[in-house]
Design a protein around this nucleic acid. Structure first.
Length: 465
RNA sequence: GGCCCCAUCGUCUAGUGGCCUAGGACACCACCCUCUCAAGGUGGAGACACGGGUUCGAAUCCCGUUGGGGCUGCCA
């Protein structure tokens, strides 16, 4: 028998922006689909109308597009399929696999308190034959005995005792179906063959399996529960607690390619250990069974490093294009931006930036009337001999041919006369020109800045000493 | 509390019983290169949570302990 082509889905709930944990889940689904020649689907899990915000769906799709995770069929919205879910619930009711319950949440809480045992529902309405009406939910009747066992691709055999499963709600009192029910019905209906999702849903799996069984749905998908992404406290990444929306990283100047490459490394690694590589190769190498089991920390340092590598691999024109939207937010007046000047500096900036957001600060001295002086840099550079250096620089630069080589040579010899090497001599000049002690190579910067502005800044700094 | 999952350098990982004196990457430190900063090069420090087994031999298998996490919702 031939294996059917895999069908997987990423199923975000539109209750927030796509965060890195969700992005990693989406990516692993996508990688698996692309590697196996399978189909990658999207399902918007919006069964909770009160929490779901439709506009967020578009934001999530936007982030997925940005990452390059393309889907193969139009996204499925669970809210469009309520009829299907409701029919399933009726069938469960008819077959006795589910029953109505009119206990309020306070009743449930109170009884478990009195009982003193574990919290949760106690099956109070199992045989009360509650009539349809007002505040009535439908609960699934979990078996009292037996176990549900399944083989997780990543974790091996996982087994749950039915006795520990309470009768969970499948239909709200509002009439809306709930996650486990909709999930089971839709996965079956959509022909999902592999369920690849976060480990936080591992406990939901026996419930889903039980519902499928009760519905007479034959076959079961293969499950793969990915390790969680955690914060410094080793807690599951949360959009509330942690600043992890994918869109934020885009705004902070990370490239989608770098982000995807890094995300692929969280819980998986290529067999040859080469971590930074083209997506096509990752697709080729990715195997679900190689995914690791333990939680992974989202390490910004490593993301930065990878982003820097990708930035440097760009052609100059690609880099310039990518930097565009960050340049628009530079601290200078819009009209003062000089594209050609930036173009000349671009290769030098590209070599040094770890994120695109760092670009403006490396070239702002070109487009501002006055450089923004960093006090620490100033104090460090403007030592006793600074005045002499600046004077010598002014004298030399009034006549020097205006090329970086000549400018460097001139300052080198001027420094020599003062007993300073170039390392020492360049410091006051750099701060006078750019306001900072670090930045792109100085003499190329001067070349682009031009003689007049260079001299003006040197003199201004001199008089400020 | 109950159930489930997890456990190798600070971090992400390699390792599937002998190739392990535990490898790589990020971060860190030193040096080199160098007009600053990066990048690059060289070197360094840094881990198998603990205790029992099994075995001639265990990071690798088993059990327990400890620790961490997840779930325990009319969220997903």
């Amino acid at each position: 028998m031939v294996e059917p082509s895999p069908r997987v889905r990423f199923s975000p709930a539109p209750t927030g922006y796509l965060h890195v944990g969700g992005a990693r889940t989406a990516l692993f689904n996508w990688l698996f689909a692309r590697h196996t020649g399978g189909t990658f689907l999207l399902r918007i899990e919006d069964t909770d109308l009160e929490r779901s915000r439709p506009e967020l769906t578009e934001a999530i799709l936007d982030s997925l597009r940005w990452l390059g995770l393309d889907w193969d069929e139009p996204p499925v919205h669970q809210s469009d399929r309520v009829d299907l879910h409701l029919q399933a619930i009726e069938r469960l009711l008819a077959s006795g696999h589910a029953y109505r319950c009119d206990c309020s949440q306070d009743d449930v809480r109170e009884r478990s308190r009195v009982r003193g045992g574990p919290p949760g529902y106690d099956g109070h309405c199992r045989d009360r034959d509650v009539r349809p009406g007002g505040d009535v939910v439908v609960r699934f009747r979990t078996p009292d005995e037996g176990r549900t066992t399944f083989d997780d691709v990543i974790r091996g055999e996982v087994s749950f005792d039915h006795a520990a499963l309470e009768d969970f709600v499948v239909r709200r009192s509002s009439g809306a179906p709930m996650f486990v029910l909709a999930n089971a019905v839709d996965d079956a209906d959509m022909g999902i063959t592999h369920v690849v999702r976060g480990e936080d849903l591992l406990n939901a799996t026996p419930k889903v399996l039980l519902v499928r069984q009760a519905l007479g749905l034959t076959g079961r998908p293969v499950f793969a529960h990915l390790p969680m992404l955690v914060n410094e406290q080793r807690q599951k990444l949360s959009k509330r607690r942690d600043d992890v929306a994918v869109g934020v990283y885009r705004d902070q100047g990370y490239l989608a390619e770098a982000m995807v490459n890094y995300l692929a490394l969280l819980g998986w690694g290529p067999p040859d250990g080469v971590e930074i590589r083209p997506l096509e190769e990752i697709v080729e190498l990715f195997r679900l069974e190689d995914v690791t089991r333990s939680p992974a920390f989202f390490d910004l340092d490593k993301l930065r490093h990878i982003n820097g590598v990708y930035l440097r691999e760009l052609s100059t024109s690609e880099f310039i294009g990518a930097a565009g939207r960050f340049l628009e937010q530079g601290p200078w007046a819009a009209g003062d931006f000089d594209f050609e000047a930036f173009e000349r500096m671009a290769p030098l900036v590209q070599e040094r930036a770890a994120t695109l957001a760092e670009v403006p600060a490396m070239v702002d001295f070109l487009f501002l009337e006055e450089p923004v002086i960093d006090p620490t840099s100033w104090d460090k550079a403007m030592s006793e001999q600074a005045g002499a250096v600046l004077d010598a620089a002014v004298a030399a630069y009034e006549r020097s041919p205006w090329t970086s080589d000549e400018l460097m040579g001139a300052l080198r010899s001027a420094g020599k006369d003062l007993g300073l090497n170039l390392r020492k001599a360049q410091a006051p000049v750099r701060v006078a020109i750019t306001g900072r002690s670090v930045g792109p190579p100085l003499f190329e910067s001067l070349e682009v800045l031009g003689r007049d502005r260079t001299l003006a800044r040197l003199r201004a700094a001199r008089s400020r000493l």
